[in-house]
Design a protein around this nucleic acid. Sequence first.
DNA 1: GTAGAATCGGAGCGTAGCCTCCGGTTATGA
DNA 2: TCATAACCGGAGGCTACGCTCCGATTCTAC
Lengths: 233, 233
Amino acid sequence: MVPFVNAVRMTMSTGTTGRAQPAAAPPMAERHLRVDAQRNRVRILEAATELMATHGIDVPIDEIAQRAQVGVGTVYRNFPTKDALFEALLMARIEPLVTAARSAAHSDDPGDAFVTFVRRLCNEFADFKALADAMAASGVDLSVAKHEISGDLIAAVSSLLLRAQQAGRIRPDVTITDVSAMMAGLSHTDPLFMDPPQRQRCVALVCDSLLVGARSLLPQGEMAASSPEHGRR
Amino acid sequence: MVPFVNAVRMTMSTGTTGRAQPAAAPPMAERHLRVDAQRNRVRILEAATELMATHGIDVPIDEIAQRAQVGVGTVYRNFPTKDALFEALLMARIEPLVTAARSAAHSDDPGDAFVTFVRRLCNEFADFKALADAMAASGVDLSVAKHEISGDLIAAVSSLLLRAQQAGRIRPDVTITDVSAMMAGLSHTDPLFMDPPQRQRCVALVCDSLLVGARSLLPQGEMAASSPEHGRR
DNA sequence: GTAGAATCGGAGCGTAGCCTCCGGTTATGA
DNA sequence: TCATAACCGGAGGCTACGCTCCGATTCTAC
């Protein structure tokens, strides 16, 4: 299946805010890099972001290096592992989401906040496929959260869900596992086949099934009696 | 992403009922195989079925050959390509589903029939991971149905859906694309992390969102205020 | 300007997986 | 029983990808 992060080894800063880890005598800690090294690091991060947004985790390192106009060696000097690079990008993406989920949990209307957040999450998946890969690979497995950060995300969503349930807006019998599974599933569907409107529809459907009250989230107007042409070459 | 079937080339029979294709002078058509060849073919099919059920499409050919107590050459003599082997297994799995969907479309209660069928589909995914892989890889892309057979399946589900909608049981604004996307998503979540009860819950939730009337599909009894322990190592 | 440390970059190693090739083996029909 | 067509099987070719290694290059402190 989708190859994925196995360990979180890293040297130097990951270019992401917070979460420094001065553990076990870092080989070459926050020593300030030579200007060329700095420039290359930025380039790598940019290239990786662009490529992983489109192609997900599966983009080869060589391609990233090429796009960054850098040798593979340089990539590996900055990120000891492809996974580490992936992790760095992921953290940068997930952290704002965690923050958003946490503040949403304190919203006046947790129900709306929940739905809004779920929508945002799905859009994020579409904008950055690697995130969807990560979610699909580990998002469902709550007990073995592979990434500390995605554990944070799940914890945050979990309490958001709880609040929304306490507010009587989300069905009380829905679990965070349910939500994660649905999100993971939704996130996995290829953006190529899932244009923004279609994605919105699916998110709306999922939310419909979670909400206690009315089911009005699906945009009205388009009547759709089973798509007109399908397959058959 | 998941490597997948690109073309449907095949020699000889695929071991599946129907659908013979006597096109372009088959190199060695239905000539009756030597007994050892026949035995090996059966073994390969069995081994592949077992392994692909658990590991999906990603199981190496060598492993299949080993399990079948046969050389890789023998595998490739029977199925010119890994994809062809995969396709053969897939057809055997999907065909009954197509039949079921078609007859369900003529049920007295298309609404129930639809829900029942969707449930069956999901169980099938769990029992045979390769099917889920196939669904996740091509199920969402209705216009370019990679497999003729999965095109059949989608067509069948499509008309089942239409009937259920005409009967007023399924929301009229739901499309076959919606259904496929949800199914594909659900099917993708790893069986390891998605035990049968959890899967049932998710299917129920999805169905809830599709049905016009009440929402009672989720089994009652278990109150679940956001799973107790999650992640955080 | 220069020494030398830091960095670069890409050839190439190792692994994995799909598939081919062909010498050896075996079933089959006369 | 024997000739031979059919079949077996696994060594190895090929490709792709992650990652390492080390000579060449570039920056920086003096």
